[in-house]
Amino acid sequence: MTTMMATPAHTDSGTTAGRPEIRPADSAPVSGAEDYIRIRDFNFYYGKTRVLFDLNLDIPERRVTAFIGPSGCGKSTLLRNLNRMNDLIDGIRHEGDIFINGRSIYDPLLEVISLRKRIGMVFQKSNPFPKSIYENVIYSLRVAGRRNKSELNETVERSLRGAALWDEVKDRLHDSAFSLSGGQMQRLCIARAIANHPEILLMDEPCSALDPVATGKVEELIHELKKEFTIVIVTHNMQQAARVSDRTAFFYLGELIEYDQTRTIFMNPASEQTEAYVSGRFG
C-alpha cells in the first residue's frame, strides 16, 4: 500500500526517497487525475504545537474523498489548508507542500484569492448571508463586479439546479434565505459554493446539523456533484463516509493512519487502529 516518495517544496516532480506516501492500493479507474491534489511531507503548527505530521496523500479528481477520525485528529485542519483558510489564523506555519493540478498552493506567484475562487467550501452550520436566495447565490459574482442580468439569472438557475434546490425555490428567489429550512439553507450554501465554477468542493461536516431527510438529500447531491467537482469531505459520521465517498483517509493525532478505497477501509482495513475506529471500538 505504501511507496517511498517525497517531493521538494514548490515543485511537482514527485520523486526521491523519503517518507512513506500512502496511495490507494486497489484504486478504481478515475476519469481525471489520480493525484489532482497532492499533499507532500506536510506538517502544520499552531504556534509551537505541531498538529499534522508528515502527511503524504494523493486525492483523485472528480471523486469524493472522506477524511475521518476522532476529534482533534487534524482532519479539519488539513481540509482548511487545502484552500489556505488557516492563513487567517495568527501564529500558524507549515512545512512541506500541497499541489493542486500540479501547482503548489504556496507558490509565491499564486494569489490566495484566485486559489479560493477555484475551491468552494461548505461548512458544518449553514451560513447564508442576510440576503435573498437569489443574492446569496450570485454573491461572489456581485463582489467581482459582474452585472449582466442574463448571466446572473443563468448562474442562479444553474447553481440551484446543481444543488438540487431549484424546484423548491424557483418561485420565491427573492425571499430571504432565512425563510428556508435548515436542509435547504445548506443546499443554498452549496449552490453559492458552486456558482463560481470551482474545481474543488471542500465540505466540513456538511450534514451534522441536518435531520436524516435533509442529510439524505445532501448525500444524493454529493453523489451528483462529484461528476463535475473534486470533493473532499470531513465527517464524523462513518456511515456517511461509507455511503458517499470513493476514498477514505483515517487520521489519528495528526497522522495519516490509512488511506485507501472506501470499500477497503470499511470492509477490510489494513490497520488495526482503522479497524477499531470504523467498528466503534476505539479508545
Partner: peptide, 9 residues
C-alpha cells in the same frame, strides 16, 4: 450483499 451492508448501513 456484504459490500452493501458495510457501506450503506
Amino acid at each position: 450483499a456484504i459490500s452493501f451492508m458495510s457501506l450503506r448501513a
